[in-house]
Design a protein around this nucleic acid. Sequence first.
DNA 1: AAGCACACCTGCTAGC
DNA 2: TGCTAGCAGGTGTGCT
Length: 281
Amino acid sequence: MPELPEVEVVRRDLDPVLRGRTVVAAEVGRDRAVRRESAPEAFVAALTGRTVAATSRVGKFLVVRLEGAGHDVVIVHLGMSGQLRVAESADEARLPHTHVVWTLDDGREVRFVDPRTFGQMWHAVATDPGGRPVPLGHLGPDALDELGDATMLASRFAGRRVAVKLRLMDQTALAGLGNIYTDEILFRAGVAPHRPSGAVTEDECAALVASIRAVLPAAIAARGSSLADAQYVDGRGRPGTYQEHHAVHARAGRPCPRCGRTVARLAMGGRSASFCPGCQR
DNA sequence: AAGCACACCTGCTAGC
DNA sequence: TGCTAGCAGGTGTGCT
């Protein structure tokens, strides 16, 4: 799935389910789902009997903070196809590819379902002085909560020859944007995806910042984007609707909604960019 | 040392 | 109809 808006929708669904609840049991059905742990047993032991203090998010990573003096957390990344689903009880049938299950003290279950297995979760102990878990220290500022001004973005682009779309997707530069939302953000800002990031002007950086500030909240309000393969659903299994507002992403060959020219597709960094050659320069 | 290519998986679709 | 190749929202590593 999932880029920042989808992860944020899942976090908002899950927070009231988890907050103040105690995890009475945890089970790992597929070791790869907790592959950063020394052993799945360590993950289960660290989580069992613990009460959830709060949830937060950094970029595409979901952070579940546990009560106690140790400042420890569970970090979840949904990868390409991960879902966190709430079941009202253990009796509800499990979906195929259910790899991790947390049983809560109210009888509900939180289930991690992930067909492609690129997602994972793990227990992390230390937090840095800013309150971020140490394993997430390499991430740049969060694109929703910590986005700065045009000057900040320009400083992230300065001296770089890499294409601006790839730079926007670089999680160490700015955290949370992926292939869908960089397509949409670049379209709205009128910037072509293959432009070298160092050549993007200050005015264009201002347009990109405004575009990020518009697109991410709108996508969250629409409960995320669910594309053709329909892998992304929220905590209750429902798809989002923001794909209905996509101007260019996955619309190559169809007309640009603004100027009518054909949306083009470009191979970039091992994936594909969609853009309007008329609106984006 | 920035910038690539590639590995890691499963499932669906388009095309033959 | 059935097979195969290609493609899909991600991150991390290792080579140049």
